Amino acid sequence: MISEAQFNQELDIIIANAIREDAGDGDHSSLACIPASATGKAKLLVKDEGILAGVAFAKKVFAYVDAGLKVETLLKDGAKVTHGDIAFYVEGSSQSILKAERLVLNAMQRMSAIATKTAFFVGLLQGTTTKILDTRKTTPGIRALEKWAVKIGGGENHRFALYDMIMLKDNHIDFAGGITKAITQTQAYLKEINKELKIIVEARNLEEVKEILKTPGVYRILLDNFNYEDTRAAVALIGEQCLTESSGGINEETIRHYAECGVDYISSGALTHSVYNMDLSLKAV
Rank of each mutant, 00 (worst) to 15 (best):
D27I: 04
I14R: 03
I199E: 07
H172S: 09
E4H: 09
K60W: 09
G269M: 11
K137F: 14
E21C: 08
K41N: 09
T129C: 07
E229I: 09
C33M: 13
A67Q: 05
V65S: 12
E211N: 13
H83E: 14
D134Q: 13
T118M: 12
R256K: 14
F62S: 09
L103N: 11
K214A: 15
D77Y: 04
C261D: 02
E49R: 13
T135E: 06
I179Y: 04
A100S: 06
R102H: 07
G249E: 01
K131N: 08
I14D: 02
T130H: 01
Y265A: 04
T254H: 01
L103V: 14
T73A: 00
K195E: 14
K169C: 10
S30P: 12
L31P: 00
N157M: 08
G248V: 06
A115H: 08
M111Q: 08
V71S: 00
E156N: 14
D224Q: 01
E240K: 15
K151W: 03
A100M: 13
S29T: 15
N171Q: 04
D48G: 08
K198F: 04
Y163F: 12
S246P: 08
D279R: 12
I266G: 02
V104S: 08
A100L: 14
I221C: 08
A42H: 09
E211T: 11
K214H: 05
K99W: 04
I14A: 05
A236L: 11
L98H: 03
V209D: 05
I166D: 07
I212S: 05
I250R: 10
A234E: 00
G249V: 11
Q109N: 12
K147H: 06
T135Y: 01
T139P: 00
H158Q: 04
T272H: 04
T116H: 05
Y189S: 09
V218A: 09
H273T: 15
I166P: 00
I212A: 08
V201T: 13
G141K: 11
I34M: 09
E196Q: 15
I255E: 11
Q241C: 08
S246W: 02
A119R: 14
D264E: 10
R20S: 15
Y265R: 12
Y219M: 03
L213K: 03
G24Y: 06
T244I: 05
L133P: 01
N205H: 06
K99G: 00
K181Q: 13
E4R: 10
T118R: 04
A233N: 14
F121C: 01
E4D: 07
H172L: 07
E192H: 15
M165F: 00
A149M: 03
N225T: 10
L222Q: 10
A79Y: 03
G262P: 03
L197V: 08
G239T: 06
K195C: 15
S93H: 07
W148H: 15
R20D: 12
G68K: 11
R102F: 04
V275I: 06
T130C: 05
R204G: 13
T129Y: 11
L206T: 11
A234L: 03
A107H: 10
T118Q: 10
E245D: 03
I152V: 14
V218T: 10
S281V: 05
V61W: 00
V209T: 02
C33V: 12
A53R: 04
V150Q: 15
L74S: 00
I2C: 06
D164Y: 02
Y89I: 00
K41G: 03
M167T: 05
F120N: 07
K195W: 01
K181R: 13
K70E: 00
G84R: 02
A79M: 00
I13C: 07
V81P: 00
I183L: 12
